[in-house]
Amino acid sequence: MNPGVEQLKAISRRFRPLLQDGTRPLEFIGRIAAEVPSLLRNGMRKRDLRYYLDLCGVQALPIVLLICLLMGMVMAVNGQIQLSKLGQEIFVADAVGLVVVKELGPLMVAMVMTGWAGSAFAAEVGTMKLDEQISALETMGIRPESFLVFPKLTAMLVSMPILTIFGDAAGILGGMLIGVTSMRIPPVAYWTRTLESLDVTTFLLGAAKSVPFALLITLAGCYCGFNAANNSQGVGRGATKAVVSSIFLIVVADVFITILYSFIGY
């Protein structure tokens, strides 16, 4: 036998697990996608959906508002330091408005939700697996992937854009608080300046980012839960993995989305 071929085979054997790591998430996504038609036919359990809407929307709102408000304030203070050198503090309104609506709003909400929902999903699914609840679902003839993922996914797809809108508003409000109190810009002037710098397309494109982010957080969370090792440490590691991979995926997706938007001129 050709030693070169043998070596190649050895190498390919070593890389097979790696390749499987790459294909398994795809398989997971495929399983879920395959269930979409039956979801559309049969719907999902309303109670589960309501529970996750409550968890990912209502309960996450205060922390999202707080963090976005603070981020808006931080940006305004930093903008003030720079722009006051030119005597152009009013442009803080532009800076905060644009950055919050375009980038920081959707991104901060995604980060908060990664910690809030993504890790919870992973831990929940991981525990269900540990507790044989997943097996139980399976032997009832119910597909655990779709049964567990769809309510979470729907809730996230609904609540993330709403949270992002709230987050945008809170960020602008934070900037305005600093603008009005520390820079003594009249609120009306700040408001006019903010409206001046933004337009509907920017706002919509910014808020639209939350949809792929929601998808990524949910899928990463559930995937890490389903693939967590069958012990309590495994569940913990699954949650960590969910958070880390979500953040990574969100940032990568944001890069792609920004490039995509740049093609259409935004």
């Binding site: 269900m128 507790d131 609840q133 139980a136 399976e138 032997t139 003839g141």
Partner: peptide, 18 residues
């Protein structure tokens, strides 16, 4: 899945959906 629906399984801890 159709075959699975013909039998019932009771798991160690009950595996109730919490």
């Amino acid at each position: 899945r159709e075959i699975m629906r013909r039998f019932g399984v009771t798991y160690q801890g009950g595996a109730l959906f919490s």
